[in-house]
């Protein structure tokens, strides 16, 4: 079975990091919790309207403590038996590339070429790899720049999602694939900006003009409206330029990067060796 799979190039999607059911479960729970951690201004209004005081002031604390721990559990679960030396080496090298790209791009334009590598990598090497690569890229760049802060777990999770979903895109090939990746890159760029802004929105705007700030206890529709106003007023320009930058970069170089990654994945032969089946047959 494995030998036939190895012999034919039919396996188009090598899985660099196997996602087993326990890791899937951990990933799902962490992602659900992450959604809550990002979206609590809309989700946690509850019935007590005006003075959800203790709840909403403490909520960010709880999320800031629990989310990184959950991410560590997910990482440990993914690593447990699913990560071999090749996956680690590839992860390290690609994370270094991504981190270097990120440090290059900290300027006013907002164009961040991090996704430029993450999208093809998630696409070629699978969703588990994409998720871990997204997280480690952000972590590595934070270590490089000395910018470790409470925002890091949130950024890591958001980038992890970008890589994860890049590994879940439908199987297209050729130009259609590059176009799909570019479109996804644009969407992901916008969504990433909106999500990560959402994390600091309640703090950044507390006490500012109520039409753009988080109002304790208001209904989720009102909060959404306020957040949309805030987003348009502050960051839509940056995020649009990031989205367009992603798409253009992927259109320009996506094919070459995909090819290079596929070749590396083929040489690493991720799907083959763990079972030792051929060795037994020979012996």
């Amino acid at each position: 079975m494995t030998t036939t799979a190895l012999a034919t190039p039919a396996v188009r999607r090598p899985v660099a990091i196997a996602v087993r059911w326990r890791s899937t479960f951990a990933l799902t729970v962490a992602s659900l919790f992450g959604l809550l951690a990002f979206g609590w201004p809309f989700l946690l209004h509850g019935t007590s309207a005006n003075v959800d005081a203790a709840h909403t002031t403490d909520a960010p604390w709880i999320f800031a403590i629990v989310l990184p721990l959950l991410l560590l559990v997910v990482l440990a679960e993914l690593a447990d038996g699913g990560m071999d030396a090749k996956a680690i080496a590839l992860l390290g090298v690609l994370a270094a590339c991504g981190a270097a790209l990120r440090t290059v791009s900290i300027d006013a334009t907002g164009v961040s070429p991090v996704f430029f590598l993450l999208l093809p990598a998630g696409r070629v090497l699978g969703r588990g790899f994409g998720f871990v690569l997204g997280m480690l890229t952000l972590f590595g760049s934070a270590l490089l720049t000395g910018g470790v802060g409470p925002w890091l777990p949130f950024q890591m999770l958001a980038t992890g999602w970008v890589g994860l979903f890049a590994g879940c895109l439908p199987p297209l090939r050729g130009r259609a694939e590059v176009a799909m990746l570019a479109a996804y890159g644009a969407v992901a760029g916008l969504a990433y900006g909106a999500l990560t802004n959402l994390w600091f929105w309640p703090f950044e705007t507390s006490g500012l003009s109520p039409q753009i700030s988080y109002v304790r206890g208001a209904s989720w529709l009102v909060e959404l409206h306020h957040y949309a106003s805030f987003y348009v007023a502050t960051s839509v320009g940056w995020d649009l330029s990031r989205a367009i930058g992603n798409a253009v970069l992927v259109l320009l170089a996506g094919r070459t990067v995909l090819l290079a990654l596929r070749r590396a994945a083929r040489r690493a032969a991720f799907n083959s060796p763990v079972t030792f089946v051929p060795a037994k047959r020979v012996g």
Partner: peptide, 27 residues
């Protein structure tokens, strides 16, 4: 600790509708 509390002491805001007090949904 704060979660254990079940009530808040504050100035609640009402708007009258048809001669009855309605808790204001807006600030």
């Amino acid at each position: 600790r704060a979660h254990a509390a079940t009530a808040y002491r504050y100035w609640a805001y009402y708007v009258a509708q048809a001669n009855t007090w309605q808790f204001s949904q807006r600030g």
